[in-house]
Simulated assay, not measured.
Amino acid sequence: MNIDNFHPLILNVGKAVLDANWNWQNVCSPFARIYYIIKGEADVEIDGVNHKLKSGRMYIIPPFTTHSTKCQGLFIHYYIHIYDNSLTGNTLFEEYDFPFEIKSNHGEDNLFERLCNLNPSMILRRSNPIEYDNNQTLARSIIHNKQRSEWLKMESRGIIFQICSRFLVNATTKAVIKNERILKTTKLIHANLSGNITIEQLAAEAGISQEHFIRLFRQTTGTTPMLYINQKRIEKAELLLLTTEKSIREIALTLGYEDNSYFVRVFKRVTNTTPSEYRRQNKQ
């Protein structure tokens, strides 16, 4: 991935002062979390391994990483939630393994403080993931990010690049063959959301049989190829519903659904609401 295609959108940023109330189980989000610990300690469990968060350190949790958090006393930290709106479909987090923990080089205080001062409207009012980690909130946050003034987006993005570079310097390229094959197919999916994407095409792109591809895709992503395609299409549909005046039919066709009724059924299965209800509720 060319770093010029890294397009981070800030969803939330702020400074949290917590007291034994950062206890959440099995959190999994489509965005990355970055923490800079100011005071106190907390625990984060990932894949059955417990990690201790300590003051003076920075931490990153990539998108779609299931984790649980726990703190038993005063815990003060900065947080940033960023969504990689990659211009090419595949994201920085899909191509690199980042170190979970890095030491502060004493310049982070100013960076995080400046980012918070620039974006006071992005502070979380509550730390409960259930309240801010859902498709509707994600779509609204992305829209809010894009509606800011150009100078504000530029300075904020510059700070994000500086912070992410601290992790990238020790990141390693994902070189496992199965990841490379699946990354090739996810690129194809992102680039052809409006087209008729078949399992046969994806398997050919990966260079393996269809049966092997379906099994490998599920092992890597935790879902089937068709569910993944529908999820990405519906995420795009949510943004189109909130940011354009296109009809439901037009959006369905834009995303490769020739059968409008089928599109509505898929949308409701993913979001628990119909496209028209989603547009009406969120525009209100």
Rank of each mutant, 00 (worst) to 15 (best):
K283A: 06
V17C: 06
N170D: 12
T172N: 08
L253T: 07
R181V: 01
K246V: 00
G222M: 02
V264P: 02
E108S: 08
R148W: 00
G107R: 13
S121K: 11
D19P: 04
I38M: 10
T271I: 11
A206F: 01
L87K: 13
E250V: 03
K174P: 04
I3C: 02
S29G: 03
P120L: 00
I80P: 06
T220M: 02
E131I: 15
N2R: 11
L111S: 05
T172H: 09
Y96D: 01
T137S: 10
I61C: 10
W24Y: 14
F213Y: 15
N260R: 14
E94D: 15
N26C: 01
I38C: 05
Y35F: 15
W24P: 04
I163K: 13
K54I: 00
A32E: 07
L111D: 07
L202K: 02
N196C: 09
R157P: 03
E45C: 03
I234M: 06
I214M: 02
N105F: 11
N110M: 10
S194I: 07
S276C: 01
Y96N: 03
E180V: 11
E205V: 09
L87P: 03
V264L: 07
Y228S: 08
Y35D: 08
T220P: 00
A139L: 08
T244P: 10
T91A: 08
M226N: 13
K52P: 00
Y278T: 08
R249K: 15
I214V: 09
I76N: 10
N21M: 11
L242V: 09
Q201M: 11
N260I: 15
F93T: 03
I142Y: 00
D259C: 09
I251D: 05
N179Q: 13
C116V: 11
I229H: 01
N135Y: 01
K283N: 10
